[in-house]
Write a protein that binds this DNA or RNA. Structure first.
Length: 425
DNA sequence: ATGCTCCTGCGAA
DNA sequence: CTAACGTTCGCAGGAGCAT
């Protein structure tokens, strides 16, 4: 019954500090793609009042004033550290759900209740010692409550040094805690639903916990109803272990600067399709259609706006980069209009099925995969995995890359590139 | 009346 | 030097369509 939610503290910041201890105690932010917005903030930066998602150009003045150090996000590094943390956490439970790059649920069913607080401390110590990443642990009877407990651990609301086990609280303590927490802190209750709940006079976690589930379902949805039940110790949300492949794959980016020509858009679409196809093959899936979209910059209100997408069905489901690129470019030509300043494009692979499972048509005798294409793709994937993702690229993904992301504040790839580690040293 | 597919809104990290 | 606001995924519910 008990479940733990382990969440890394300021994960991207902690990763940057791991290899550059001088950053300890300094105000740091990690920026989103294109060095756009803050996606991870050190405690020092949070203390300055800088919000999650705040655009860099809006805080730049303040950054200069307080000596804030900004990094472009380095997902190769974060992904590598994440898998080490997850592997360590796996040793603490028979059943783990990796929920995001920095969070994991651990099933603690069967563990004696009075030992859980200590067990949480042991998890913290071990991850800190083995990987160097600080984490907080929330423990409770349901996933929703474990998330809430984790929040309490992070904010030190129960004075428990990074671990909060809601099971240790008596009824009065629990109620007092829940009365002090706004509904918006609950997993699944975002901005909109918070506002609507507030309209109904439901402002605290305790008030939502005490609400009538049937009423909540009628007024909101079955999702919010489940949340109410989970707040009352009734588990409704299963632990999801790895295995179910994705239903769609999306690769899209804002450009480092705006782009006008069809040629530049073709380059970007070819590149994104290539990355998407790699993910597809890694999942062992095939796609039956490709969606392409392009759009101008909606923040530039004085410029003419244009946004369009199209779905291109494939004759036959495929995981071959060449086939998918062909379909994507066909779609692009269809939606492209000259004369606009394009800021973003993207490619979505849809209708994903496990490879090798023929769908549908009994009369269709066309083989579902072509061996030549299969082995060609395997060779390309393996070389790109070892040597860096652009070692072998499809003609058409371009070498000019005038649309490339801005990443002017990158830290080195300490863990995945020897050359960059040496340079850093 | 019922069952679909497509689209939109929402939330999360 | 300049301009400058993220990405990816799943789910639920409603609209629209076909039967």
């Amino acid at each position: 019954m008990p479940v733990a939610l382990v969440d890394c503290n300021n994960f991207y910041i902690s990763c940057e500090r791991l290899f550059n201890p001088k950053l300890e105690g300094k105000p740091i932010v990690v920026l989103s793609n294109n060095d756009g917005c803050a996606v991870s903030r050190s405690n020092e930066v949070k203390a300055l009042g800088i919000k999650m998602g705040e655009p860099w150009f809006k805080m730049e003045q303040m950054a200069r004033q307080h000596g804030i150090i900004a990094f472009s996000s380095n997902y190769t590094l974060y992904g590598d550290i994440s898998s080490r943390v997850m592997a360590t956490l796996a040793t603490f439970t028979p059943r783990q759900e990796i929920y995001s790059i920095d969070e994991s649920f651990l099933d603690l069913d069967g563990f004696p209740a009075h030992t859980l607080q200590d067990y949480g401390q042991k998890i913290r110590r071990t991850v800190k010692r083995n990987i160097g990443i600080p984490v907080c642990v929330g423990i409770a009877s349901t996933k929703t409550l474990a998330k809430l407990a984790n929040h309490c651990a992070k904010k030190d609301l129960a004075g428990n040094d990074g671990v909060c086990d809601l099971g240790q609280l008596d009824e009065a303590q629990r109620r007092a805690l829940f009365q002090s927490l706004p509904v918006g802190e609950i997993w699944g209750i975002g901005r909109k639903i918070s506002e609507s709940l507030n309209q109904l006079g439901i402002e605290t976690v305790e008030q939502l916990r005490a609400a009538d589930p049937d009423f909540i379902r009628k007024r909101f949805s079955v999702v919010v109803e489940r949340t109410v039940r989970e707040l009352n110790d009734i588990a409704c949300i299963e632990l999801e272990q790895a295995g179910t492949p994705r239903q769609q794959i999306l690769v899209s980016r804002s450009f480092g600067r705006s782009v006008v020509t069809l040629d530049d858009l073709k380059e970007s679409v070819t590149y994104f399709t290539t990355r998407a196809a790699e993910k597809l093959r890694k999942d062992g899936s095939v796609a039956n259609s490709v969606c392409v979209f392009i759009r101008t910059n909606p923040f530039k209100v004085n410029e003419p706006q244009y946004e369009r997408s199209v779905v291109v069905p494939l004759m036959q489901s495929s995981d071959d980069t060449a086939m998918l690129v062909k379909a994507a470019l066909f779609g692009l030509k269809h939606i492209y209009l000259p004369g606009y300043q394009y800021k973003k494009s993207g490619v979505m692979l849809m209708g994903l099925q496990p490879k090798g499972v023929t769908q549908g048509n009994l009369f269709d005798e066309i083989p579902i995969s072509d061996e030549k294409s299969d082995s060609r793709m395997k060779v390309i994937d393996s070389i790109n995995r070892k040597m860096g993702k652009d070692t072998i690229a499809f003609a058409g993904s371009g070498t000019r890359r005038s649309w490339a992301m801005r990443r002017e504040r990158m830290s080195p790839n300490y863990t995945t590139r020897w050359d960059e580690l040496v340079r850093a040293g």
